[in-house]
Amino acid sequence: MSIRGSNLLTLGGLSREALLEILDTAESFVEVNQRTVKKVPALKGRVVASLFFEESTRTRLSFETAAKRLGADVVSLAVASSSVKKGESLRDTIATIDALGLDAVVLRHRSSGAAEQVSRYVPHVRVINAGDGMHQHPTQGLLDAFTVRQVLAARRGLSGSETGSSLFEGLRVLIVGDIRHSRVARSDIAAYATLGAQVRVAAPGTLLPSDISNWPVEVVDNFDEALEWADVVGLLRLQQERGTGAFVPSLEEFTFTYGLTQERAARLRPETLITHPGPMNRGVEVDSAVADLPSALISQQVSNGVPIRMAVLYLTVAAPKENS
């Protein structure tokens, strides 16, 4: 099912065709972002609300930039300046903003499921999940897949869309770190697995979800060997508080066991790509020098955030719903 005219709450359940449609649409917006005048009027006159109930710099900036480049009016609610802190319920906050005549809500919230709940409160508005608790961060999963395809296609002298999903077939993706608490991991795994990649995960036992056997992934027992296997290494941010004894004895021990140190990075094949959703804890999950290697795609990921979010806004808000 395409996201045309629908909400984007999760990548779980989206078909390969639906994912490719978003990636291909984003590719057409890359060119817009390289123009001197970086605007297309696809969402002219539409109102997009950006509601970030949780701290975020790059995702918020990226969504708001995307909406503005599509010509939309952006209503932005900053948590500190809103009445949310005065005990107003999520439902009342949404109702207030909805009174401005919204076409879409981009929502970031610390609670899993908040985006889906909001979508029930305002069924006439398209809801785009910009990260909900430990559940999903769909646009991050999309831009990770987009960036990987872009780089792999360029190596073959092709554009990403010319390759469809072929470069994901059998692609060996290793996702490392706090899988249990990571919305990025859930979205990445859904995207990569649906596009045809083989996904393995490496994490301390406490940072694996309780029922990982039901996920479309394999758990690796030897992280160092898996690094030699991988075509793509997806690093995740380790929340500092997870490494203070409750889940992992210490940050140092995490780095010792699962950090991408220079020593471990030497085991990677030269063509292996490294991704990280940011913000990085340099020296914890990734060594600072490794993060700056040419194979680390971190800055491409950030710049691809805008075209991916333009594509998502365009498809969900402006594109007509499919009849199927």
Binding site: G12, S112, G113, D132, G133, M134, H135, Q136, R180, R183, R186, P209, S210, D211, I212, N214, W215
Partner: peptide, 15 residues
């Protein structure tokens, strides 16, 4: 409840 569903939903489970 803790299980595959709680893990997929990103909710902490009570085993």
């Amino acid at each position: 409840n803790e299980g595959a569903l709680s893990a997929a939903l990103g909710l902490v489970g009570r085993p």
